[in-house]
């Protein structure tokens, strides 16, 4: 399974699924299925999403579960 940070990234930027879907050229429901992990994106779509968020692709998608953001911030502070 491929884990992703799409819901967090989308929430940070205040984007709707429709807006993100339009930006990368997919149906808005596909973004929902992607976020829920029902569907693994192609390399092309993963790179488009990385380009849109201006982040390396491995910061959005991972084969292992992402650490929760709160844990990451706490670890950085300590």
């Amino acid at each position: 399974m491929v884990h992703n940070r799409l819901p967090v990234l989308r929430a940070e930027r205040g984007l709707s699924r429709k807006a993100l879907a339009d930006a990368v050229g997919v149906n808005y429901q596909t973004i929902g299925y992607l976020e829920r992990g029902d569907f693994n994106p192609s390399l092309e779509l993963a790179l488009k999403l990385a380009g849109f968020f201006d982040l390396p692709v491995e910061m959005i998608f991972s084969l292992t579960p992402f650490r929760p953001l709160s844990e990451a911030i706490r670890a950085e502070q300590e």
Binding site: G25, V26, N27, Q29, T30, Y33, L34, F39, S42, L45
Partner: peptide, 20 residues
């Protein structure tokens, strides 16, 4: 319906998830 769209819509109007 959405499901019938996936089954019968023109190919170039579907995204990669729908095509799969």
């Amino acid at each position: 319906s959405r499901q019938q769209r996936i089954a019968g819509e023109e190919q170039n109007k579907l995204d990669e998830f729908e095509l799969a």
